[in-house]
Design a protein around this nucleic acid. Structure first.
Length: 695
RNA sequence: GCCCGGGUGGCGGAAUGGUAGACGCAGAGGUCUCAAACACCUCCGGUGCAAGCCGUGCGGGUUCGAGUCCCGCCCCGGGCACCA
């Protein structure tokens, strides 16, 4: 945990700025606490495998989750110390690249490794270095970006394959106790981090392989080809010469296992889910600590344990720790005075199953069997991309756990059938400064923005900040109610849908809302002004446009491409406005337009539907179906390219044979001119698409 | 640092490897009007009198043809396990 030694409190990663506490400014330390975990790691393989079945999830989200779970094939190799130290006679190193063992030139252990701790107890210099290591925050980002530091322990271990080689043992701040075994062997030639470390501390660099036909001199860049690339191994212990990384890794594991030098392992990067929070806001952990019985689960009859209401937040730390009447309870087992667990659960716990609770929000039990059976799964889940990993992975885990505990049916272990990740709405930020220099944020409503800058209404200058996602804390929010109040809900909805694809971030602007209203007024006018008479010869063209619109708008809506659906509605409206078709056909076309618009502008659509002669409500009319016969085109326009550049175009019947198209192309003026009597080298006709003449 | 996205006119954006810029906004010109508003029409990537040339973040490559595929970069955003 991040520990603020001045405020005596645990800090979130977000509250650690440049290694210092956000309030106290004190240097933050990494501390270990006894904590509660959910054993999500038991589900690593299952959560990974099941990703393949999530057909209606974005590929990128499945990829991110797969990488997060991080399945890897590797080996545990004991390196024997030249002499036992503090009861340790070997260091077990984990590596995913056992094929590079030849290049191992040092060992590195985490500052939290048992051996490092034993050394620290005995040597203040090691203790000081370990303390230095712990000053780096707990986030993976902080650890990765921190300068790589090491301390030579003076110990040596023998190389398991080349026992004459003695490798120095270092403590490294980049070695994580949480991953692998907390110890690794450094192979600088084929790992950038190891190489940086080796160059810094002047450790040897030995190639385990070269690119075929080369002898690679390693400078400051490690040689790291992809694992499916064939490389040339140097004196490999298995006898392998040319092999891919994958082949050599498997051969190396087999070879090591056969000689009892190591054990093949399948590991996952996914760590258990630490749910303990030293805070008030979170679900209490229903556990009591008893001096005689130990850790005891609260009785079912006493569940749920509720948070106390009379709490004060006037000092840092967890108010539950300072709340005796809530904290001090009898042991559920023996009845002796005992203490409640005062850690609460991560609020991700709540978001991991709220959708299941929503199926029976008043049930006395977490879920109601009949209701979850009926309502689950979620057909379409919509959320921001920032939830791609944590929330969505925890929910998948939780659903499995709830299935095992009988709270969810088997069908709901993947709770979200389809996922759509929408982008974020962003806006500039506006700030003035308080007396002590801290920013005071202002909402866009209170700011007068010109091309030169921005001021408050009283003329005070305002700093313009970056365009970032709308958030209450930065006050860069715009209330959609303002647009609704000014233009009505139909215009507001159409406007919001019309421009940006929903998966993309959008910088909010109200510019264009006026134009949207004009367009909707135009539709209303077109519907009201359908005059009797008209030319039946134009009916077919209008109906074709209508069916084209049905097909395109439907595809747009189903594909979450609302902006494209709106564009097609504009096209159809324009075609309608130009059409001189008969009144009956125009009314039929207008009814189709009303239906297609109804998801976005339901109120207007009902009115238009009515005046165009629609029966009942447009909302209850069945969605129109495009007639394939109406979508077919008889002639197509083919662009003609000469050497890949568009030079002319011809209009031909849709299924004209390629040979006939060729004749027409060769007779074309522009082509004849370019050819100047010669025959083309190549003539490519892509039916219905394009023609390319290669000279 | 690592993983995942994205980068196309003045702007939002469109484009199964096949006419780059659909559709909309903004802008320019015009018709109507005493005038304006509304509405309607035309133009609208850059450059050039024109033919043409250039153009989808940058540099290479594959292909008859690349915004789209491949390799190497740059920039922006999301995530990195205690922001949720």
């Amino acid at each position: 945990m991040n520990w603020d030694p001045v405020d005596m409190t645990v800090l979130a990663n977000e509250q650690v700025i440049d290694g210092k506490g956000w309030r106290s400014g004190a240097e933050v330390e990494r501390r270990e606490l006894t904590q509660w975990f959910f054993r999500i790691s038991d589900f690593s393989e299952e959560l990974l495998d099941a990703l393949d079945g999530l057909k209606d999830w974005p590929e990128k989200v499945r990829l991110m989750q797969a990488n997060w779970i991080g399945k890897s094939r590797g080996i545990e190799v004991p390196f024997h110390l030249t002499a036992p130290v503090h009861g340790h006679d070997s260091l077990i190193c984990y590596s995913t690249r056992p094929d590079t063992l030849r290049g191992a030139t040092f060992l590195a252990i985490s500052a939290d490794h048992p051996l490092a701790r034993a050394l620290a107890d005995a040597d203040p210099k090691v203790a000081a270095f370990a303390a230095e290591c712990r000053k780096v925050g707990t986030s993976e980002e902080a650890l990765e970006k921190a300068e790589k530091l090491g301390m030579d322990t003076g110990l040596f271990a023998r190389h398991p394959i080349y026992p004459e080689k003695k490798l120095p043992v270092w403590i490294g701040n980049f070695v994580l106790m949480e991953y692998g075994t907390g110890a690794l062997y450094g192979c600088p030639s084929h790992d950038q981090r190891d190489l940086d470390f080796a160059r810094k501390y002047d450790l040897p660099v030995i190639n385990a392989f070269n690119m075929p036909g080369e002898v690679n001199q390693i400078g400051t860049e490690a040689l790291i080809p992809a694992k499916d690339v064939t490389v040339d191994y140097v004196d490999h212990f298995t006898g392998i010469k040319l092999a891919t990384g994958y082949e050599a890794i498997e051969a190396s594991i087999d070879w090591m296992e056969a000689r009892g030098l190591g054990t093949g392992q399948t590991r996952y990067r996914l760590r258990d889910w630490g749910v303990s929070r030293q805070r008030y806001w979170g679900c209490p952990i229903p556990v009591v600590h008893c001096a005689t019985c130990g850790v005891v689960a609260e009785k079912k009859a006493n569940l749920p344990v509720e948070l106390p209401y009379d709490v004060s937040f006037d000092q840092p730390g967890n108010p539950l720790d300072r709340h005796p009447t809530w904290r001090d309870v009898p042991c559920p087992n023996c009845g002796a005075p005992a203490k409640r667990e005062t850690d609460t659960m991560d609020t991700f716990v709540d978001s991991s199953w709220y959708f299941a609770r929503f199926t029976a929000p008043h049930a006395k039990t977490p879920t109601d069997k009949a209701e979850v059976d009926y309502w689950m799964n979620v057909d379409q889940y919509i959320g921001g991309i920032e939830h791609a990993i944590l929330h969505l992975l925890y929910s998948r885990f939780f659903a499995r756990a709830m299935n095992i505990s009988g709270h969810l049916p088997k069908k709901a272990v993947e709770p979200f059938n389809a996922l759509f990740t929408q982008g974020m709405v962003t806006h500039e930020t506006y700030a003035t400064r308080s007396k002590d220099g801290r920013p005071v944020w202002h909402t866009p409503d209170d700011v007068i923005r010109t091309s030169e800058g921005a001021t408050l209404k009283d003329g005070t200058q305002v700093e313009i900040g970056p365009v970032i996602k709308m958030s209450k804390s930065k006050k860069n929010v715009v209330d959609p109610m303002d647009i609704i109040a000014r233009y009505g809900a139909d215009t507001a909805r159409w406007f919001v849908m019309s421009d940006s694809p929903p998966e993309r971030d959008v910088e909010w602007t109200a510019a264009g809302a006026d134009a949207t209203q004009k367009h909707l007024a135009r539709v209303w006018r077109l519907a009201s002004e359908i005059a009797e008479g008209g030319d039946p010869a134009q009916d077919e063209a209008l109906l074709k446009a209508a069916h084209r619109a049905i097909a395109d708008v439907t595809a747009g809506i189903e594909g979450f491409a609302f902006n494209k659906a709106v564009a097609k509605l504009y096209e159809f409206t324009n075609a309608f406005a130009k059409s001189g078709a008969s009144a009956a056909t125009k009314r039929a076309a207008m009814r189709i337009l009303a239906q297609l618009m109804s998801p976005m502008v339901p109120h207007l659509a009902e009115e238009v539907w009515r005046i165009a002669g629609g029966e009942g409500l447009v909302a209850s009319a069945p969605w129109p179906k495009a007639d394939p016969a109406m979508l077919a085109e008889d002639t197509v326009t083919l662009p003609i390219q000469i050497n890949g550049k568009r030079r002319a175009e011809i209009s031909v019947p849709k299924d004209m044979p390629a040979a006939e198209v060729e004749k027409i192309v060769l007779a074309d003026e522009a082509v004849a001119k370019a050819l100047a009597g010669a025959t083309p080298k190549k003539l490519i006709v892509v039916p219905g698409r394009i023609v390319n003449v290669v000279l």
